[in-house]
Amino acid sequence: MGNKNFADKLFFSVTKVAAFISFALIVLLFIMLIKESGLSFSKFGLRFFITKVWDPVVEQYGALSFIYGSVISSLLALLISVPISLGIALFLSEFASKKLKEFLSIIMSLLAGIPSVIYGLWGIFVLAPILRNYIEPFLQKIFGFLIFFQGEPYGLDMLAAGIILSIMITPTISSISKDVFESVPRNLREAGLALGATKWEMIKIAVLKTAKQGVIGAIILGLGRAIGETMAVTMVIGNVHEISLSLFHPSATLASVIANEFAEATTDLYVSALFKIGLTLFFVTVILNIFAKFLIYSTTKKYKV
């Protein structure tokens, strides 16, 4: 009896420590990032985030062009992915038969699990040539008067990064949106139908309106993934430290610059500047994730009967 009790207590302690470690890891990581970026903070302060010169030769570091690259490539990804993802989610939750739904859900989670380097490889050798030879010249022909589609079509550029990211975040946004749609209770759907709504009208008034907050959460979660995604983006974005409105221009993101330059960072200030970018990424993705989880949680739990 005494022995059993001891085993229970031991087990409890071990699991408690394990749970604590995960929390400690986050805190330690955060502290480490702050400490390591200290040098850069003392040299550049917050100006770091609004200057775009990134020149290791003269030891001048500013992250604006990477912030710009991260924001634009992620927004581009959302622009492409959100309509497709919501279409997938609506189809799965409202129209697909049970079998098809299960099958497609498995496919979606498989897609989400593919290592990003594979997407990058595909991006370089398949997507980029198609963009360079067909899609970008075509876009230029039609929308060439817009600044977004000017310049030499290069293939490895902001557009490629946006497209790769859109593919990578679609499983996330669609599967979470599907869960959110499915959490809308049956009695709200029936309330809509009982008012004489068609299926589409019912979806609009009962499903979409009710699920809106959770869907925004799913989109923000996708945004977090897009901002943090490193490998595939680094492989296709062209890695140029410039701000250009043209989507055909190579660019760089917060994540890609770290992946690209950590090996060349030979001075303390250079390393510190990279850590500061790391801290920025960490901070932004953690905040986005917390916010997104909160929105999703508050929608899906509210209607649990």
Binding site: P185, N187, L188, E190, A191, G192, L193, A194, L195, G196, A197, T198, I205, A206, K209, T210, K212, Q213, K302, Y303, V305
Partner: peptide, 28 residues
């Protein structure tokens, strides 16, 4: 759809649309 407009229904669990105002629930 036409039948359901002529034959209204009130359910077991009160089910107003949660993201609509009182006014919009009636106006929908």
């Amino acid at each position: 759809m036409e039948v359901r407009k002529k034959v209204g229904m009130v359910f077991q669990q009160p089910n107003p649309f949660p993201t609509m105002t009182i006014f919009d629930n009636v106006a929908v």
